[in-house]
C-alpha cells in the first residue's frame, strides 16, 4: 500500500518536473516573439523609456502606419521582390527535381551513375566556396543587381532530385508501361502519370525551398545593390540601420517580415516538422 502510493507520488513528481521543464522551454521559445510584437505596438518614446515597460501602456498601430506610408519603403514592391524570387525558385526546383528524379529512378542510359554522383556531390560543396566565382560569372552574364541573379544560380537542387528519385522508385512500373501502351510520349508520361503522384513530396520540397529562399540573406547581400531590388531581409537590415534611433519602427518592420513565414508554418506545421527530421533542411 505504501509502495503503491510512493510510486504514484514519484510519478507525480516526475510529471510535475517534466512539465516544468517543458513550460520553461516554451516561455523561452515564445518570449522573443511576444517581445517583438509588444514592442512594435509601443510609441517611439515608450520603447526607449527607462525603466522599460514590457506591455505597451497604450497599444498603437502608429509604427505600422509610419512604415506603410513611408515613400522610401514601398512595401508592396519589396514583398513582390521576395515573393517573385521565392516563387520562381520553388517552381524551377520542383520542375527540375521531379523531372531529373524521374529520369534517375526509371531510365537506363550510359553515364547514369556518373551523372548522379556529379549531382549528389553538390550537397557537399559549401556555398561559401563558390560564391566569389559565382559572383564574377553573374557579372559576366550581366545578372548582378537583378532578381534573376538570385534565381538562376539555384535552379538545380541536389537534395530535391534525391528526394524525388526515392519517391518515384516507389511508384509501380506498370503505371508507366500502361502509359507507353496507350502511346503517350515520355514527357506526357512524366506530366500526366508521374507528376500527379508526387503531390506530397513536391509540397514538402516546395515549402522548404520557399522558406529557405524567403530567409536567404548572404547571396542577396552580394548580388543586390539597388534599393528598389532589395528582398525583405535586405530591406530589414537597411531599415534598422537607417532608423537606429527609433527601435519601435525596426520591431514593427521585423513583425511585417516574420508574419508570412509564421503563417505558412502554422498552416503546414505538421508537414514541416515531420519532414525536417528526414530531409536535410537547414
Amino acid at each position: 500500500m505504501t509502495t503503491q502510493s510512493q510510486t504514484n507520488f514519484s510519478h507525480l513528481i516526475g510529471a510535475v518536473l517534466r512539465y516544468t521543464v517543458l513550460g520553461i522551454g516554451l516561455s523561452v521559445t515564445l518570449l522573443p516573439f511576444v517581445y517583438v510584437i509588444l514592442s512594435s505596438l509601443k510609441t517611439p518614446s515608450e520603447i526607449i523609456q527607462i525603466p522599460p515597460t514590457f506591455f505597451p501602456k497604450v497599444p498603437t498601430w502608429q509604427n505600422f502606419t509610419t512604415i506603410f506610408n513611408d515613400p522610401k519603403v514601398p512595401l508592396g514592391l519589396f514583398f513582390f521582390n521576395s515573393s517573385f524570387v521565392a516563387m520562381a525558385r520553388v517552381g524551377v526546383t520542383l520542375f527540375t527535381s521531379s523531372l531529373a528524379g524521374y529520369i534517375f529512378a526509371r531510365y537506363e542510359f550510359g553515364g547514369k551513375g556518373v551523372m548522379f554522383a556529379v549531382i549528389m556531390a553538390q550537397i557537399m560543396i559549401p556555398f561559401q566556396m563558390i560564391m566569389i566565382p559565382l559572383y564574377l560569372i553573374l557579372v559576366k552574364l550581366q545578372l548582378i543587381d537583378t532578381l534573376w541573379g538570385l534565381i538562376i544560380p539555384a535552379m538545380i537542387d541536389a537534395f530535391g532530385i534525391f528526394m524525388m528519385r526515392q519517391f518515384i522508385e516507389g511508384i509501380p512500373r506498370e503505371l508507366i508501361d500502361a502509359g507507353r501502351i496507350d502511346g503517350a510520349s515520355e514527357f506526357q508520361i512524366y506530366r500526366s502519370l508521374i507528376l500527379p503522384q508526387l503531390s506530397a513530396p513536391l509540397a514538402t520540397l516546395g515549402i522548404f525551398t520557399f522558406m529557405a529562399t524567403w530567409n536567404d540573406y548572404l547571396w542577396p547581400l552580394i548580388v543586390i545593390t539597388t534599393h528598389e531590388r532589395r528582398t525583405l531581409p535586405l530591406l530589414l537590415t537597411w531599415y534598422s540601420s537607417s532608423h537606429g534611433s527609433r527601435p519601435s519602427l525596426t520591431m514593427a518592420a521585423s513583425v511585417i517580415v516574420l508574419l508570412p513565414i509564421i503563417l505558412i508554418y502554422i498552416l503546414f506545421q505538421r508537414q514541416i516538422v515531420a519532414n525536417a527530421a528526414t530531409s536535410g533542411f537547414k
Partner: peptide
C-alpha cells in the same frame, strides 16, 4: 511544433529581435 518555430523564422529578424533584447538601456 512550438520549439521548431524559431528555426523557420528569418535569421535577420531574429538578429534584430535579440539585438533589442540585449539593448543595455531599454532591453528586455
Amino acid at each position: 511544433a512550438v520549439y521548431f518555430l524559431p528555426t523557420v523564422t528569418s535569421a535577420v529578424a531574429v538578429a534584430l529581435i535579440w539585438g533589442a533584447i540585449y539593448n543595455p538601456q531599454a532591453g528586455l
